[in-house]
Simulated scan of single mutants.
Amino acid sequence: MGRVIAALLALAATQAAADQVGKVGVDWVGNDIVVEAFHDPKVPGVTCHLAYFERSTIDRLRNGNWFEDPSNSAIECSRTGPVVPGDIARGPKGEAVFSEGRSLIFKSLRVTRIYDEPNGVLVYLVHASQVAEGSAKMSISTVPVDRAP
């Protein structure tokens, strides 16, 4: 059990923190689309903007689903400096760079970085992760890496 907790703490320490840069109301009950920015913690020069739906208290009470937000999200990542991948995961499963809870316990919104090394591109995939049932809703963004001369 101690190893599991240590692994979770280490994973959280390597993931990015996000700053809210926008919040747009979408209806009369107070539902919003939130836009957050975060920097890839292991690849300087990459900034991602993540947009997701945030349910209001009125919507939660009206629909009876108090503890969960929808999985809808979008991502766009940009080069904001030199992009040189350092010590990052290079396998097809990629590496988690951001995670944010979307329900009380069982659902999170995640950004996974996958390095497409043959093409010199970092792929950022945003998706929901659930314990029981996954979601097919996703979005991707790509950022070219700097190649050695």
Rank of each mutant, 00 (worst) to 15 (best):
G30M: 12
P41C: 14
V34F: 05
A16M: 03
V43N: 01
G22Q: 09
D40N: 10
V34S: 05
Q20F: 10
G22R: 08
K23G: 04
D32F: 06
V43T: 07
V46N: 08
A37I: 12
G45F: 10
V35M: 13
V35K: 11
V34K: 01
K42G: 09
G22K: 05
C48R: 00
K42M: 12
N31P: 07
T14R: 15
L50N: 02
L50M: 09
K42W: 08
D27S: 07
Q15D: 06
F38Q: 04
W28R: 13
D27I: 02
V34H: 06
C48G: 04
T14F: 04
D19C: 05
Y52K: 01
V46E: 09
P44T: 07
I33R: 07
Q15Y: 08
A37V: 14
V29N: 04
V46I: 14
G30L: 09
K23P: 02
V21F: 03
F53R: 06
I33C: 05
P44L: 08
P44V: 08
G25H: 08
A37D: 13
V43Y: 01
P41D: 12
V21G: 00
Y52I: 04
H49S: 00
V43S: 01
P41Y: 11
P44W: 05
Q15H: 09
G22S: 13
D27T: 05
T14M: 06
A18T: 09
Q20R: 15
V35S: 13
I33W: 03
N31M: 13
Q20N: 10
A17N: 15
H49A: 00
T14I: 05
V29R: 07
D40Y: 05
V46H: 08
A18K: 06
V43E: 01
W28G: 04
L50K: 01
H39M: 10
V43A: 01
D40I: 02
V26I: 15
V21R: 03
D27N: 15
F53N: 01
G45W: 06
V29H: 03
A17D: 15
V34Y: 02
P44I: 07
H39N: 07
V24N: 08
L50S: 03
V26G: 09
